Amino acid sequence: MDKKKIVMFGSYVADLTGRAPHLPKAAETVFGDEFKMGPGGKGSNQAVAAFRAGADITVVTKIGKDVFGELFLDFYNNEGMATDHVLQDEEKGTGIALICVDEGTGQNQILVVPGACTNFTDADLEEMRSLLREADILLMQFEVNLDALEKVMRMAKEENVTVVLNPAPARDIGKDILAMCDIITPNEVEAEALSGVAVTGEKSARQACGVFHAMGIPHVIITMGKLGVFVSTPDGDRMVPARIVDAVDTTGAGDAFNGGFVAGIAEGMDMFGATEFGNVVASLSVQKFGTAPSMPHRAEIDKVFCRERE
């Protein structure tokens, strides 16, 4: 099977994760039970999820010359993922995320300091056009400097590459930039921030999708946790049910979905099939601790996905 080539332009940050009986309130100190340091960042997490799901994906990100950057290189080398297009910043350090996880509910709080991946320069982007000429799909998020994101999106449109944007975390961005997306994948919070419609269920999700379609975005995928995923395309829309599992750590669930979703698109699945595939990837990831290390491999995914489609 011929798979479409994906380029991920986005973030890498090191995840510094602690588990505790409950999440701290303002000015509260909570004793934790476990600490781990591992690879993270929305862009890298999604790339790892797609790679483990079988995608042909090239990663373009930026790290610092520090111990956290070394962690990235070690992890990618162990995964067998190429680092040819990973840049190193002379000024800023590798990004980090401070993550607190409630060990009872699996819910989390996250503080991200993006560092090097918000310092992409014009010189850094010189190779992007040649990469995009050989690519079919561009996957992006909002954890990079927005001027670089806009320039790369424009390159992709000029090269007729399908642009998939996961607009996370929510940021103020022009509608002219959003209009360059072919597929946008916000969660309910991000959908509200960008559309102005509070997304609480299927009816409001459809209204929010209408706003995105009016901007010129043909395909809208709104993830809503346990409520499921609302998919709206020129051919119709419907809610795709969530897979309910016993979650131990929901950190990175959205990244797992997006990586699985884009892997499905690259294999020729339609929007609904790719959404179901992404749901399986996300449901498997939250049953493990961590972000990138929790992403399931293809054999594990197929056991569930193939069975549910029989």
Rank of each mutant, 00 (worst) to 15 (best):
L149I: 07
E267A: 15
V248Q: 06
V152H: 06
A170D: 08
A253I: 08
D15H: 06
E190Y: 01
A20L: 14
G18Y: 09
L194E: 01
H219A: 08
G64H: 01
L73C: 09
L227A: 14
A299S: 13
G216S: 06
F305E: 05
D235C: 10
A20Q: 05
K92D: 13
G268Y: 05
E190V: 00
C100G: 15
R154Q: 14
V101H: 03
V211L: 08
H22R: 13
R309I: 00
A208S: 12
A82M: 07
E158Q: 14
D84P: 08
M269R: 13
A266N: 03
P114E: 01
M271W: 02
N119F: 11
G38T: 12
M215R: 04
K3F: 11
T121V: 08
A53D: 05
D147G: 01
R309F: 00
K4T: 07
V144E: 05
H297Y: 15
A247L: 09
T251G: 04
K303V: 07
G41R: 00
M180W: 10
D124Q: 09
A282W: 01
D136C: 12
F142G: 07
G10Q: 02
K288R: 13
G196P: 10
G264P: 11
R52F: 09
H213L: 06
Q207L: 12
D249V: 05
A49I: 09
A50C: 08
T61A: 10
G95C: 11
K65D: 15
A116L: 11
V48N: 10
D66T: 12
A263V: 06
V220R: 03
G216F: 07
V13Y: 02
A26T: 13
G268I: 05
G201H: 10
G278K: 04
I177W: 07
P218R: 00
E188C: 05
D89R: 01
F35N: 14
G273T: 10
M271S: 06
A205T: 03
I6E: 03
A198F: 11
A208E: 05
L71W: 00
C306A: 11
T185P: 02
C117K: 01
V86A: 11
D176L: 00
E300R: 01
